[in-house]
Design a protein around this nucleic acid. Sequence first.
DNA 1: TGCGTATTTGGCTAAACTTGCAAGTATAGA
DNA 2: TCTATACTTGCAAGTTTAGCCAAATACGCA
Lengths: 107, 107
Amino acid sequence: MDAKTQAKYEARAKIVKAMAHPARLFMLDELAKNGERCVCELTELVGSDMSTVSRHLAQLKQAGLVEDEKRGQMVFYRLRVTCALSFFDCIESVIKCNAKSQQELLA
Amino acid sequence: MDAKTQAKYEARAKIVKAMAHPARLFMLDELAKNGERCVCELTELVGSDMSTVSRHLAQLKQAGLVEDEKRGQMVFYRLRVTCALSFFDCIESVIKCNAKSQQELLA
DNA sequence: TGCGTATTTGGCTAAACTTGCAAGTATAGA
DNA sequence: TCTATACTTGCAAGTTTAGCCAAATACGCA
């Protein structure tokens, strides 16, 4: 794998890695469904320490998946790209496929 | 986040995590484009130790993204789900979006 | 100016991930 | 049976990530 190819897949991996956590996937899904949310709302929904949630959001932002806007004392986050939903569909199809295989093994 | 929701996003994260590595993304892409490949071919393409490649493939298999078949001394891996390509499209669109934003910052 | 709320950041520890080498398993062929 | 090739797995070291508490920052309001 030459340097250029390497760089290409590292860039992709960076983005995928940013999504590779249950709390971050949950928040992306939440933002996709309900539009913007402030950190305190997400903290409430996720149920972790706010500092943890803030760091998760920073990772999503760094990857370019979300953007933030400060209004007053609150910071609102929203999705920056629309494809997140198709992403979930894909993951869901893998899960269904896995479930099907398992059932076939049992049958 | 209740236990059921938690489990749902953990299952999703498992799959995303399995993709969250440059070498694994590369191999998925390779399998998507060229059909099945044996471990030795992928090892050659990736350029890491075969043991490392084997472990990466085991992770993809564990997540249900690829399946393997032993023929003779070789083990062939192939994609198990077809949505990987749309996945890449999504990631690529994020990358393009990021690049665009950066250009706007410079302009 | 002083207080309270919202959020980020520093510091630290525990857990998870990555990787190569060496050793073990399996199969084809002499 | 012996050997070479293709893989997989055990082990150990190095790196990254996650999570919490505490401290710092930013803003609205009295």
